[in-house]
Computed example of a mutant assay.
Amino acid sequence: MRTVPLVGGPVELRGALDLEVTEAGVMPRRLPAWTKEQYQDPSVHGVTLMPSGVRLVFRTDARELEFEVLTSTGQLDTDPAPRPTGMLDLLVDGAPAGRRQAPLGNVLRMAAPGAAQRLIPGEPGTVRFTGLPAGMKSIELWLPQQTPTELVALRADGEVLAPLPDGRRRWVHHGSSLSHCIEADGPTGTWPVVAAGLGGAEVINLSQAGNAVLDPYIARTIRDMPADLISLKVGINIVSLAAFRLRTFGPAVHGFLDTIRDGHPDTPLLLVSPVSCPAFDETPGPATTGPDGKVIALGDPADVAGGALSLAVVRAELARIVAARQAHDPHLHHLDGRELLGPDETDDLPDGLHPTAAAYHRMGERFAAHAFTPDGPFR
């Protein structure tokens, strides 16, 4: 086995916009380094380190690969075990070729969600993929979408070369936890990855679980990066955090779109409204969790008349904004999120908010059937 450099060599790290050097190796981040000074909430940093959509890409004639990583997963003091570390998925020439459990490394203990964390240090672990096909082949090694993962070492028993251009269009997507897809069965089971595979695109997933609230630094990041296709899934965090009123929501959406258009004036851009979520469809946030583990909306439906936002209001406002802007922006498109997961499928929301792994697959298939068809916005 020979050690392959993870940085400065033939391996491309796709889906990450920054690399933090750590004592163990390097940690991918899904936002540029300059964004760190623009937020204070530690949850933003945490979800940015969760490598949803991040993968190592290269070519090799190796029959065996070893990948050494150091994961960091959380554990509540009341839980008997740390949260699952997730999976590492291997694709060979675009086809699934193996899935391995990510090894348990660091554990971050906390008394309650969002409380101060106590680090219990762990050690790097190694996963192996053996019996790979003979000959030169394209490799994609996908990191667990829900677990910060430091890259320590990559080893192969053959030659490793840089990937060749494949002509796929680059699709940049931003959304909430329902696009981050922590609950998916693995990193290639998130709905943006499923849709990208069906649509022949290469997705960059900038989704921020719990933090999709039209932050300007996200818009500037998208503005400044290469993109052939762009999609934004907007609304659930804005309602669940009670982040805006109707008066401020519309201008914030316009400003977010204006910033992206400064860098991508003609790029197809699909604005997706929220999927069905009974707790918030007619009731404003903020949100809490009930004793049964399901999400509850704490707002008063009567306050909608005064400007509070429910998902129904957000859907109507997004449709209105797109219709108004299409007069001068023919490359802007709208999709009602209920076409991805509708009101008759809410049994697929175990906590009342987040879809099951199977539902994420369906969402990816439906998005691809809408966006990547000959008449679709990503045609």
Rank of each mutant, 00 (worst) to 15 (best):
V11S: 04
V11N: 04
E12V: 14
E23W: 10
G25D: 02
R29H: 12
R30Q: 09
Y39P: 08
Q40C: 10
L49H: 01
M50A: 15
D61Y: 01
L65N: 05
F67Q: 07
T73L: 06
Q75A: 12
Q75D: 08
G86H: 05
M87R: 07
D93I: 11
R99Q: 15
R99I: 05
P103R: 07
M110A: 14
R118S: 14
L119M: 13
E123A: 07
G125K: 08
T126K: 12
T130I: 02
G131L: 10
G131H: 09
L143S: 02
P148Q: 09
A153W: 13
P163L: 12
R169Y: 04
W171Q: 08
E183Y: 05
T188V: 14
W191V: 02
G200N: 13
I204C: 00
N205G: 06
N211I: 02
P226A: 07
D228F: 01
G235H: 08
N237Y: 01
S240D: 03
R261E: 14
L270R: 06
L270Q: 01
S273N: 02
A279L: 02
T283A: 00
T289K: 14
I296T: 15
I296N: 03
A302R: 09
A308Q: 15
V314E: 01
A316F: 00
L318Q: 05
L318A: 04
R320E: 10
L332E: 08
H333E: 09
G337H: 11
D348F: 10
D351Q: 01
L353F: 13
A359L: 02
R366V: 03
F367S: 03
A369F: 08
R379F: 00
